[in-house]
């Protein structure tokens, strides 16, 4: 039982990592007033770019850096459509997702061709601050990126609530007219928010290819981006709740993995679907108290 629980907690942290990164990325975009449905494709792009650059250069860190840069570019492209042109955010976000997915698949085939054996790379090593200590040892034997993702949560909170940049970002998402009147450059803040957000999303995708898998498969993101979109509502746009939401979702997924590993005869697909259904239920319950940024989905025009 103890081994089962320890394994469960360790797996929860691992499963939650890309969700924490992706949802924090979405938090930046949405707090500035842009719903970025490009997240699914941006995570895919991050997973691909990270893998391809790490494979070609032999450096995992260069791969991660390239993934973040690619994600920032995807965020800026989203900005071109939603901030500068003021296009419908739902449709342009989906367009970004489709385009980034297409670019990743295309470049993967150009670089690696069609191989019978999946190309792979050695993954990031795990760090183990507690060594062989029982319980704590295996629980905290995690990838460095998991620690970084968790540490980002208070950092993002500090950035949003304790810095003038955060104040301006939130103002732009709540009332762009007032922010503009107060001398804030609405367009620039939104571009910056989308770039930071895109970088974080891509890092979430890169975690999967560089740490968890060591390869790039076409189903690598498998709807995780959409989960992040739901988690942000579940978390009511508050950084600390992003962490709890991601851990809850990760916990249910990890439980399914562990039960499957014990050989229990369970329809594991139903367990896989469970977190999605729980999220929808949470949306229903959170619906009435949800406090979305007031200017979300509204393009800003200076006329």
């Amino acid at each position: 039982m103890e081994a089962f629980l320890v394994g469960l907690i360790a797996a929860t942290l691992r499963v939650a990592t890309p969700l924490i990164l992706g949802t924090l990325g979405e938090l930046f975009s949405e707090r500035s007033g842009i719903l970025n449905l490009g997240i699914e494709g941006t995570m895919f792009l991050g997973a691909f770019t990270g893998f391809a650059v790490a494979y070609l250069t032999g450096s995992l860190w260069l791969g991660l850096l390239a993934a973040v840069l690619a994600g920032m570019l995807a965020g800026l492209l989203m900005g071109l459509f939603t901030v500068t042109l003021g296009v419908n955010q739902h449709v342009s976000g989906l367009g970004i997702t489709l385009l980034m997915t297409g670019i990743s698949l295309f470049l993967y085939r150009v670089i690696f061709g069609e191989r019978s054996v999946q190309p792979s790379i050695p993954t990031f090593p795990k760090v183990s601050p507690f060594g062989d200590t029982p319980v704590l040892g295996p629980i905290f034997e995690q990838y460095l990126l998991t620690y970084i993702a968790i540490a980002l949560v208070p950092l993002v909170w500090w950035l949003l609530y304790r810095t003038s940049f955060g104040l301006r970002l939130r103002a732009v998402g709540e009332n762009p007219e007032a922010a503009d009147a107060a001398g804030v450059n609405v367009f620039r803040i939104r571009y910056i928010a989308l770039a930071i957000g895109g970088g974080l999303m891509a890092a979430g995708g890169a975690f999967l290819s560089l740490a968890q898998l060591g390869s790039f498969i076409f189903g690598i993101i498998a709807g995780r981006g959409w989960v992040c979109i739901a988690l942000i509502i579940f978390a009511n746009w508050i950084p600390s709740r992003v962490l709890w939401g991601a851990l809850l979702f990760g916990g249910v997924s990890a439980l399914q993995l562990r039960l499957q590993a014990t050989g229990a005869q369970l329809p594991y697909e139903l367990f896989l679907a469970l977190p999605y259904l729980v999220t929808i239920l949470a949306l229903v319950l959170a619906g009435r108290s949800a406090a979305a940024p007031a200017a979300l989905l509204k393009p800003y025009r200076r006329e």
């Binding site: 709807g223 989960v227 979109i229 697909e269 999605y276 929808i280 229903v284």
Partner: peptide, 23 residues
């Protein structure tokens, strides 16, 4: 009935039915 955003729920349900088909 409950004013839950349809974009998010339809996106999530797209994944749910894939699991059901796999089942």
């Amino acid at each position: 009935r409950l004013d839950v955003d349809e974009v998010v729920t339809t996106l999530l349900l797209n994944t749910v039915i894939l699991f059901f088909i796999s089942f």
